Computed example of a mutant assay.
Amino acid sequence: MIMSSRGSACPRCGQATVSIGEAVPWCAACEWNLDTFDRAGRAPEFGWAWIDRGTYRLAARLTRQQYAALVDRPLESSGLGLAGVATAVASILLTVGVVALAATGVWMLFAFAFPNLAVVAGVAMIGLAVALRPRFGVVRDRRPGGRVSAGR
Rank of each mutant, 00 (worst) to 15 (best):
W48R: 12
Y56C: 03
V119P: 00
F110T: 11
A59D: 14
G7M: 06
C27E: 08
V138S: 04
Y67P: 00
I126P: 04
P134L: 02
V89A: 12
R42N: 15
S19L: 05
A88R: 13
D52K: 01
A90R: 07
I20M: 12
M125V: 00
M3P: 03
A49F: 02
T95V: 14
A113W: 04
A124F: 08
G14Q: 08
A49H: 07
S77K: 05
S19T: 10
A23I: 02
L101C: 13
F37I: 10
I126C: 11
F112V: 13
Y56E: 10
R57M: 10
G47Y: 04
E22W: 05
R64S: 12
G137W: 01
R140M: 10
D52T: 02
G7K: 03
A131R: 12
G146F: 05
L82G: 11
A150E: 15
P144T: 09
Y56G: 06
W48F: 12
F46Q: 10
C27L: 12
L132R: 13
A131D: 04
R73W: 00
V123F: 06
A103C: 10
V119I: 13
V85E: 15
D38H: 06
Q66C: 07
V120K: 00
G97D: 05
P25N: 08
R152G: 09
G7N: 05
V123N: 00
N116I: 00
A113R: 07
R147Q: 08
G54N: 03
D141L: 10
P115T: 09
G54E: 05
V24T: 15
T95I: 11
L93N: 13
L94A: 13
M108G: 01
A40Y: 02
G127M: 11
G14Y: 04
W107E: 06
R152T: 11
R142M: 09
G84S: 05
A9P: 10
W107V: 12
S8V: 14
A40K: 11
R53Y: 03
W107G: 07
V123W: 04
P11C: 08
L132H: 05
L101Q: 07
G137N: 05
L62E: 14
D72L: 06
V123G: 10
M3L: 15
G21Q: 10
W107K: 04
A69P: 01
R53C: 01
A59Q: 14
S77I: 00
D72I: 03
R140S: 14
A28K: 11
V89T: 14
L75M: 06
M125G: 07
E76C: 02
G145C: 08
N116W: 06
L132V: 01
A150G: 15
A129M: 04
A100E: 07
L132W: 09
G41Q: 14
I20D: 01
G54W: 08
A86P: 01
